[in-house]
């Protein structure tokens, strides 16, 4: 089974979804992410879905679950790079992704989390 990699940039964890998400993959991603947030003490999670062009209600709920979970561990979640077609689908499905912050692209997402890029930070 494929795993979604979790990258650490400064105090932010970056999850870039590049594959078709199966229910099993999502389950494992949530577990991995929770574990990484605790281990690294990350303050923010960015989920990059630029490469995702099909969503269903299950994936929509995943964003909310991850956001609530992260908030319990004091990390803010931002979903970035949502495509127009995906946004329209989610609205038609009646999912508003309550509690999830969104940004147009990775750069704006990082700015939203108030984080400077790692090269500018003190070498963490």
């Amino acid at each position: 089974m494929e795993r979604v990699p979790i990258l650490k940039i400064g105090q932010i964890l970056l999850v870039s979804i590049q594959i078709d998400l199966q229910d099993q993959t999502v389950q494992v991603l949530q577990e991995d992410l929770a574990e990484r947030i605790v281990r690294t003490g990350a303050r923010g999670v960015i989920i990059d879905i630029t490469a995702v062009d099909i969503v269903d209600s299950f994936i929509g709920r995943m964003f909310s679950t991850i956001a609530s979970m992260s908030r319990l561990m004091d990390a803010e979640t931002v979903v970035v790079g949502m495509r127009p077609a995906v946004a329209i689908t989610l609205v038609e499905l009646g999912l508003s992704l309550g509690g999830v912050r969104t940004a147009l692209d990775l750069e704006k997402g990082m700015r939203l989390l108030g984080a400077s890029l790692p090269s500018l930070a003190d070498g963490r």
Binding site: M82, A87, E92, S96, T102, L104, L112
Partner: peptide, 12 residues
């Protein structure tokens, strides 16, 4: 409303 919600989902 739908248009605004969709734009919001994209972070705008």
């Amino acid at each position: 409303l739908k248009t605004v919600m969709a734009a919001r989902l994209m972070g705008t």
